[in-house]
């Protein structure tokens, strides 16, 4: 194993955007221009906040944009707090990209459902970008997005603009606050409102595990082939290259076999309480 894989490279924060109270999007560029990079939708990097520690963060930008890397970070603890507090010009260590991709490119000619909960929209955004850039290759597409409250929704203005690409976009919240006139209820309730019929379609699902479990069950209950449901797992990880075993779940290492898995590979382990 090359040590380079474990060695963070310095990246400079170019832009910070506050998405909501506890989520920030960072756009970064490599400090030295000599290392090119590319990634696939669904992959993640290990982001190192110097002096604090490292966290796995999915890439939320466009895989075809060269020269910058976009990450959307929710402040939940020490590392993500330090990363979220970064200013333009600060340097962050990045190693990656790691992990499996959303198999969107191999699902051309199909109806597509993108189902996201909370911060789960960030790892799915590159899928939407891919669809937009190749819109003619896909049939009906719907993005279904659930969050706790209206103020928690990510990429709000952008969500609206996806509709211009013949994509159905529906958002729902658990708790409506005054002024919210759209759906109320968990994200699974949007599935029956989608113009995409689950039978014959493929789904890309990301959010909390409970949400993914219920979403997969609703989709397969409505006739979607379980092999066409893909989820992205977020379990604690350390090395990100399948060495340390921290993110092992049953026979799978989330970091190198995942984070994106076909539903049938994860469903048996996701219902085991001890795992």
């Amino acid at each position: 194993m090359s040590t380079e894989l474990l060695m963070p490279q310095p990246w400079v924060v170019q832009k910070t955007e506050r998405e909501n109270e506890d989520v920030v999007t960072l756009t970064l560029a490599p400090e030295s221009s000599d290392h090119g990079f590319s990634f696939l939708p669904g992959q993640f990097n290990m982001l190192y906040a110097f002096g604090v520690g490292e966290s796995a963060i999915s890439i939320s930008g466009d895989a075809t944009t060269n020269g910058s890397m976009v990450h959307t970070i929710r402040d939940v603890g020490a590392v993500t707090h330090a990363l979220s507090a970064a200013h333009v010009g600060d340097v962050i260590g990045i190693r990656g990209p790691y992990g499996s991709e959303w198999p969107i490119a191999s699902h051309t000619g199909r109806d597509i459902l993108v189902v996201a909960g909370g911060i789960g929209l960030a790892p799915l955004r590159p899928v939407v970008y891919h669809i937009i850039e190749n819109r003619h290759k896909y049939k009906d597409v719907a993005v279904l997005y659930g969050s706790r409250e209206p103020k928690d929704l990510l990429f709000r203005a952008e969500l609206e603009s996806w509709k211009d690409h013949n994509i159905q976009v529906e958002a729902t919240v658990d708790n409506a606050t005054p002024g919210w006139t759209r759906h109320i209820g968990v994200v699974t309730t949007l599935i029956r409102r989608a113009k995409v019929e689950p039978r014959g379609a493929a789904a890309f699902v990301c959010g909390p595990e409970i949400m993914m479990r219920f979403t997969a069950s609703e989709l397969t209950g409505r006739g979607m082939n379980p092999d066409d449901v893909f989820i992205s797992m977020e379990r604690n990880m350390k090395c990100a290259v399948g060495l340390c075993g921290r993110c092992q779940l049953g026979p799978e290492f989330i970091c190198k076999d995942g984070p994106v898995f076909p539903w049938p590979r994860m469903s048996p382990v996701m219902t085991i309480r001890e795992l």
């Binding site: 909370g118 911060i119 959010g207």
Partner: peptide, 9 residues
């Protein structure tokens, strides 16, 4: 809806 599923990521 009650368990605040998105707060449990």
């Amino acid at each position: 809806q009650l368990i605040d599923v998105y707060g449990r990521e």
